[in-house]
Design a protein around this nucleic acid. Structure first.
Length: 154
DNA sequence: GCCAACGTTGGC
DNA sequence: GCCAACGTTGGC
């Protein structure tokens, strides 16, 4: 089983939004970055866990945990001209973008902010903390995963 | 295939 | 709202 971190702007889609969906699960649409696409299409497996990260907000940070419940399949919002995520270069025959489904597991006991994460040398290699990082989906090592879960209890 | 221009991300 | 960093686009 692998661990991940998935970013979302809470103004667009927050962990509370996911929690409010039927079955507390939803598709993770709108990813339009090839590296992130490849991870969803090729690497994310049912049962994998991910941190839900709130980005581009007053207090960016990890707020909860979700589980992958469906593996990569074409992101149909790319085919919908009405969607903000429409991409005329994608087609049903040759889908360019993929998504996975995730299910809400729980909130962390407290949000762990970006500033706090940065204070931990142990986490310095996380792509999230590297300068200029723009990946919206990234792997988290098992060690990092458990380290962060310990922070939650402090 | 290079690279300048442009658009987007996302912290601050 | 600013702007650094980075990915993408498109002219050549």
């Amino acid at each position: 089983m692998q661990y991940w971190l998935m970013k979302s702007e809470p103004g667009t889609y927050s962990i509370e939004d996911l929690q409010g969906m039927p079955g507390q699960s939803d598709h993770w649409d709108g990813v339009r970055n090839y590296q992130a696409r490849n991870m969803m299409r090729d690497q994310m497996k049912v049962g994998d866990r991910a941190f839900f990260y709130h980005s581009n907000t007053k207090d960016p940070g990890i707020v909860g945990i979700v589980e992958v419940v469906r593996e990569g399949y074409p992101d149909y919002t790319a085919l919908d001209p009405e969607s903000d995520y429409y991409d005329p270069k994608s087609s049903a025959e040759d889908p360019r973008w993929y998504m996975v489904d995730v299910r809400y597991i729980r909130h962390l006991r407290r949000p762990i902010g970006l500033a706090e994460l940065k204070r931990h040398q142990f986490l310095r290699d996380m792509p999230l903390l590297r300068r200029g990082n723009r990946l919206s989906i990234m792997p988290v090592s098992e060690e990092e995963w458990h380290y962060i879960l310990k922070l939650e209890k402090t």
